[in-house]
Amino acid sequence: MKAIVYTSHTGHTQRYAQLLAERTGVPAYSMKEAREKLRPKDEIFYMGWLMAGTVKGVQAAMDRYTIRGAAIVGVSPQGNGDLWTEARINGGYSDSGGRLFYLQGGYAPEKLGFFYRMMMKPMASSVIRQVEGKGDAATAQEREMAEVFRNGGDFVRREALDEIVQWFREGDHTGEVKAVPRVEF
């Protein structure tokens, strides 16, 4: 693997990329830095943040590099939707053989620009209303998500990268992420 390439908006994905670089010895570059440091079709591990079901920057990374694996960073404790069902059925791999991982990053509304804040506001309100409507029947995880949407939260943890570090050390990464990972809500 030539590099870890990431796209980050509020810093959670960047922190994961830097931690992964420390643990693997593979350099981490933002997409902008990567354009200066890497050649087209170099093999990379991509890390991107999840917004409205789309992994930010992954299409540009696929157009330029060979993505052997990807980590998608989101707010919820676990990935969901068709992509994650597919990855679980395939033992954590995409249909084209690229390894897929999910990391819980966080939510920092104060770091979001106006556009993203406005996009997140109805979703956050909906989650909070649903959890409040359940009262005592709400699970601990649901209550935690409501709290995150009220006040923000940071879940970046070094140990969350253990499975990815192990995958890096296994070597011989021949699969490729070829389709845009999308999470359906």
Rank of each mutant, 00 (worst) to 15 (best):
155 F>A: 03
157 R>Q: 12
158 R>E: 15
168 F>I: 08
168 F>C: 06
167 W>M: 07
164 I>T: 08
146 A>G: 10
148 V>S: 04
174 T>S: 10
165 V>S: 07
170 E>N: 13
173 H>W: 12
184 E>L: 03
153 G>N: 07
160 A>R: 05
181 P>M: 00
143 R>I: 10
180 V>R: 04
166 Q>H: 11
144 E>F: 08
154 D>C: 11
147 E>A: 13
152 G>Y: 07
179 A>C: 03
165 V>I: 09
171 G>N: 15
163 E>N: 11
158 R>W: 07
183 V>D: 01
156 V>C: 05
145 M>T: 02
164 I>D: 05
170 E>H: 07
159 E>R: 07
148 V>H: 01
182 R>K: 15
148 V>F: 05
181 P>L: 04
177 V>L: 02
169 R>M: 12
169 R>C: 13
169 R>A: 14
153 G>W: 05
168 F>E: 04
149 F>M: 10
162 D>S: 13
144 E>Q: 11
183 V>I: 15
168 F>R: 03
169 R>F: 08
161 L>G: 04
174 T>Y: 09
166 Q>V: 11
152 G>M: 11
184 E>P: 05
167 W>Y: 14
157 R>K: 15
166 Q>E: 15
145 M>V: 07
154 D>W: 10
151 N>E: 11
169 R>P: 09
145 M>R: 00
150 R>H: 14
166 Q>Y: 06
148 V>C: 09
183 V>E: 06
169 R>E: 15
184 E>M: 01
157 R>P: 03
183 V>P: 01
179 A>H: 05
159 E>H: 09
160 A>N: 11
147 E>N: 12
146 A>M: 11
165 V>Y: 07
144 E>W: 08
155 F>C: 02
164 I>G: 01
154 D>A: 14
170 E>C: 05
171 G>V: 15
178 K>A: 00
150 R>Y: 14
163 E>D: 14
168 F>W: 11
149 F>I: 02
157 R>S: 10
153 G>T: 08
151 N>R: 15
149 F>K: 03
178 K>M: 06
146 A>E: 08
181 P>F: 02
164 I>L: 12
145 M>Q: 00
146 A>H: 13
155 F>I: 03
163 E>W: 08
175 G>M: 01
167 W>P: 06
174 T>A: 15
170 E>V: 06
168 F>V: 13
169 R>I: 13
144 E>M: 14
156 V>H: 06
181 P>C: 03
156 V>D: 04
149 F>V: 00
176 E>C: 01
180 V>M: 07
157 R>G: 06
152 G>W: 07
159 E>A: 08
174 T>I: 07
